[in-house]
C-alpha cells in the first residue's frame, strides 16, 4: 500500500514544485541544470523506494507513476480546463519588434534570452527582425521573423 502512496505523493509534489519553478526552469538545459536534475532524481529515488529494494516494490512504483501519467493525459484530452492547469498556455513576449517588458519581468526573462532563441532558431540579429516571440507551453521560446517583403 505504501509504495503506491509514496509514488502518488511524489508525483503530485514534483508536479506542484515544477509548476512553482515555472515552465522555463528546465526547458533550456544547461550543464548545471542537467546536474541539478540528476541530484533531484537521486533525492527522489530514495524516498520513492524507501528501504525496500524488491522487484515488487519497484514494479508497483513504476506502475503507479505511469498510471497517473496516462490518467492525467486522458484528463487533459477531455477537459480544456485541466489541460490549461497542467500544461499552461503560450505567452507572447515580442510583438512586431517590440519587447513586452512587463510580461518579460513576470516570466523572469531578459532580452538576452529572447535574442538567444532568435539567433539559434532563425538566425535573427536584431529585435526589429522579430515579428513574434512566444514562450511555448514547454518553456521554449519560439520566434517568428518579420516578413521580408512587407519591409
Amino acid at each position: 500500500m505504501d509504495s503506491v502512496l509514496r509514488a502518488l505523493a511524489m508525483y503530485l509534489a514534483l508536479m506542484v514544485l515544477f509548476k512553482i519553478a515555472g515552465r522555463r526552469s528546465l526547458a533550456e538545459l544547461t550543464t548545471f541544470d542537467f546536474v541539478l536534475l540528476m541530484i533531484i532524481g537521486e533525492a527522489t529515488q530514495q524516498a520513492l523506494l524507501g528501504d525496500d529494494f524488491s522487484l515488487t516494490n519497484s514494479f508497483l512504483v513504476i506502475i503507479t507513476l505511469i498510471a497517473i501519467d496516462v490518467g492525467f493525459s486522458l484528463l487533459k484530452q477531455r477537459s480544456g480546463w485541466v489541460s490549461r492547469l497542467i500544461d499552461g498556455e503560450p505567452t507572447i513576449i515580442v510583438e512586431n519588434g517590440k519587447l513586452l517588458h512587463r510580461r518579460l519581468r513576470h516570466a523572469r526573462l531578459v532580452e538576452a534570452d529572447v535574442m538567444e532563441a532568435a539567433r539559434s532558431s532563425q538566425g535573427i540579429e536584431t529585435l526589429e527582425q522579430i515579428k513574434f516571440a512566444i514562450i511555448e507551453r514547454n518553456g521554449k521560446i519560439s520566434v517568428i521573423p518579420q516578413d521580408p517583403h512587407s519591409g
Binding site: I20, A21, E89, P90, T91, I144
Partner: peptide, 20 residues
C-alpha cells in the same frame, strides 16, 4: 498569432511567486 488569456497567465505568475 495565439489566443491568450492574460488574466489566467497573471494568476499563474502570481502562483509562481507565492510558491517561491
Amino acid at each position: 498569432p495565439i489566443r491568450e488569456d492574460m488574466a489566467y497567465q497573471l494568476k499563474v505568475w502570481r502562483f509562481e511567486r507565492v510558491g517561491w
